[in-house]
Nucleic acid binder design. Sequence first.
RNA 1: GUGCCCGUAGCUUAAUGGUAAAGCUCCGCUCUGUGGCAGCGGCAACGUGGGUUCGAUUCCCAUCGGGCACC
Length: 382
Amino acid sequence: MEFKILKKSKISRARLGILKTSSGEIETPAFVPVATQAVVKTLTSEEAEAAKCRILIANTFHLHLKPGEKIVKNSGGLHKFMNWPRPLMTDSGGFQVFSLGFGRDFGVGKIIKNNADNADRKTVGVGQQPKQLKITEDGVIFRSPIDGKELFLGPKESIGIQENLGADIIFAFDECPPPNADYEYNKLAMRRTHRWAVQSLKAKKLKTQSLFGIVQGGKFKDLRIESAKFIGSQPFDGFGIGGEFGDNKKTMEKMVGWIIENLPGGKPRHLLGIGYPEDIPKIIKAGIDTFDCVAPTHYARRGIAFIPSGKLDLNKSFFLKDKNPLDKKCGCFVCQNYRRNYISHLLRAKEITALKLLTFHNLYFFNSLVEKIRKQMKKGEI
RNA sequence: GUGCCCGUAGCUUAAUGGUAAAGCUCCGCUCUGUGGCAGCGGCAACGUGGGUUCGAUUCCCAUCGGGCACC
């Protein structure tokens, strides 16, 4: 892999680049749509490409369970398996330590609003374990959500699976602590993640893949700096930034800043799981090169379209009388050919095509948004 | 025409001699390394008219509407 920085902004930390992988190159900054189960839900790979997707991220944990990495490997690897010849990432399964663990126990996502509703939420401290899984020094004992069987995932296991899957960019196994974890828990989890990072490097054998280390540290400045410095000092090909980013957009920007300042400048930085439209200019200005987010695809399946002025909830009945396209200025095939009333009807009729049309539009919207930012960067406007 | 049964929220159904509950629909809200989920909140009803009773959605009568059986 090669990362070429074409231009550095003079007014922010933003940079324009080309990320060259074994499966071709992408322009950065770039949005990375989520294809957990080796598919952008509701779309074919050809459709994802038509929606301007140039790189996707699949998931180690999910693909290990179903269909199993050997099936994928025997099918010629992830690219051939899903007919996606372009660049691919796989997430390490570290996030599932959170989403199937404390995230499920407390019913929280990785961003938790610090309001009255959450004032009485308990904090997670050192020594606590999630109900459904066990975190040890060597890795994590999961229970398969499919058959309840015990399943162990550590750095070696994760890298082994990711090598079999065969994405171009793979991630070190990490622990993503919950947003309600206290300082001491974050410190402990972060240092464990650092040890796992070193073990992930050691476990990696294939040279065709690039390995990204993951920075943790929660919302704590000294931990984020320590993590960025440590992970940054290791021979990774690039860096992921994981975990939580405070309870509002401003703190997120600030926190990403702490990390970026302490990472080596020449390697790509991927922000894990962040990217609402309003976040995108901010994180790019903070120095992020790639980022993934379920927002466009997940919201689509809840009936919501992203447009320049915000979001449209097509479930609302007044859209049944709205003959406009989702977005008049959008160039995607959905906006060229379909109207809000029809999509709203399909949603109400529970027709899966509604989800497909919205997914396509949302991805096109996100990818166009980032494309526009790249153009602005070329002109020196960002 | 006669007999029997049934009329509770937009829909499908509960419960009760002390003014009513749920599911779906509908209307809000939440979801950031993905659940084609889920969760939270809200609007909304005793067919009509009498009677008995301190009090009737509940018991009685009539009436209207629906169903079944018989003629």
